[in-house]
Design a protein around this nucleic acid. Structure first.
Length: 347
DNA sequence: GCCACCGGTGGC
DNA sequence: GCCACCGGTGGC
């Protein structure tokens, strides 16, 4: 398969009302959505906003009621007012598979999150956020304090809702919806998001890098670390950490878990025809919850489900007796977002 | 030996 | 289905 070269990415989007505290969700009926845009590789000069006809969907109202959305953006060098979406298209040659691409593949996979974007609550256009820090700051309060274009004046003096969107979901990137209101990491700490490759069992991983450089991957580890390092604990509390990961818009980006072992092979209840829903077969379950308020993406997503049996050659021996379902998509892109490389330059 | 990354489980 | 957690492993 050979997806289009310049389109390793996709936009991801979905309601954010599924983050744990559903309380929040309920309170904002206009689901906010954040997006994470991971630049993938490949060509395409993803100009910041090709409002080309391609997929005119990310821009404006990606979602009728989407009010705020965030996308991850890698500020690369500039980070000032200049917004270069997807700066580093690390020309990595798409490793066959993640890290198994051989010794010389530059740095593993791809860096990381390509851009941080937030959708204006008023005009619905996307505004690239210059730095991860700024993005985190905005994200921390999106719910109570929706983002609007005017706020971008902080780094782009003349920006307004009249300006075209900074970036559109043109299929050149992978988009993911971030969770709202995630606390900013404590001073000295970094919250890192690593996007996994397509077909993995999870979309991403969050790590916190402590002031000491130690990386922690769960609340349990954080807690333990804090206890063992009182020197970094000044006012740091667990509430400042969140391991919530964004959701990819691309359906099937993440491999689904096979149904759990049914305990009792239940045959007791014959299915009613209606339950079977003979028509259902046609319904690829994509689309489902991402109603973008528009016809659906021209889907790069459609090329996803390819059931070839090449489940990422990883730790093969690791399988239990369950089967291996693999809908490993032949991924075209193996990117990895990486914020760790981001330098702060906002303030 | 370390660690980044991936897989998978258990609980809800 | 999602989330939290963490074991294992390959690569360095």
């Amino acid at each position: 398969m050979q997806p289009h070269p310049g389109e390793a990415a996709i936009k991801v989007e979905k309601e954010a009302n599924d983050f744990t505290g559903s309380s929040l969700a309920s309170k904002l009926d206009n689901s906010l959505q954040e997006h994470i845009d991971v630049s993938s590789s490949t060509s395409s000069s993803s100009s910041s906003e090709d409002s080309s006809s391609e997929t005119q969907d990310g821009d404006d109202h990606t979602n009728g009621d989407a009010s705020k959305q965030l996308v991850l953006y890698n500020p690369s060098a500039n980070g000032k007012g200049e917004i270069v979406p997807v700066p580093e298209r690390v020309q990595f040659k798409r490793p066959p598979f993640g890290r198994y691409s051989g010794p010389n593949m530059q740095s593993r996979v791809l860096p990381s999150v390509g851009a941080f974007t937030v959708q204006c609550a008023n005009c619905f256009k996307w505004r690239l956020i210059p730095t991860k820090e700024k993005y985190e700051e905005i994200r921390e309060r999106v719910l109570e304090n929706p983002f609007i274009c005017e706020k971008a004046r902080e780094w782009r003096p003349d920006i307004s809702c009249d300006d075209p969107t900074d970036i559109s979901q043109d299929g050149s990137r992978l988009w993911a919806i971030d969770k709202p209101n995630i606390a900013q990491p404590p001073p000295g700490w970094q919250r890192l998001l690593r996007i996994r490759g397509e077909g993995s069992t999870k979309f991403a991983d969050v790590y916190y890098e402590a002031p000491s450089g130690k990386r922690l991957r769960s609340m349990v580890e954080i807690q333990k670390y804090l206890m063992e390092h009182p020197e970094y604990t000044n006012g740091v509390t667990l509430s400042q950490f969140s391991f919530q990961i964004p959701k990819p818009l691309q359906e099937n980006y993440v491999r689904k878990r096979p149904p759990r072992e049914k305990p009792s092979h239940d045959t007791s209840k014959p299915l009613e025809p209606s339950e079977v829903n003979p028509l259902a077969w046609a319904g690829p379950d994509n689309i489902t919850d991402l109603q973008l308020g528009r016809p659906a993406l021209p889907p790069p997503a459609l090329e996803a489900p390819i059931y070839d049996h090449v489940p990422r050659p990883a730790k093969q021996a690791r399988r239990t007796s369950k089967q291996m379902y693999s809908n490993a998509i032949s991924i075209e892109h193996k990117f990895k977002a990486d914020e760790s490389s981001q330098s702060r330059n906002s303030t």
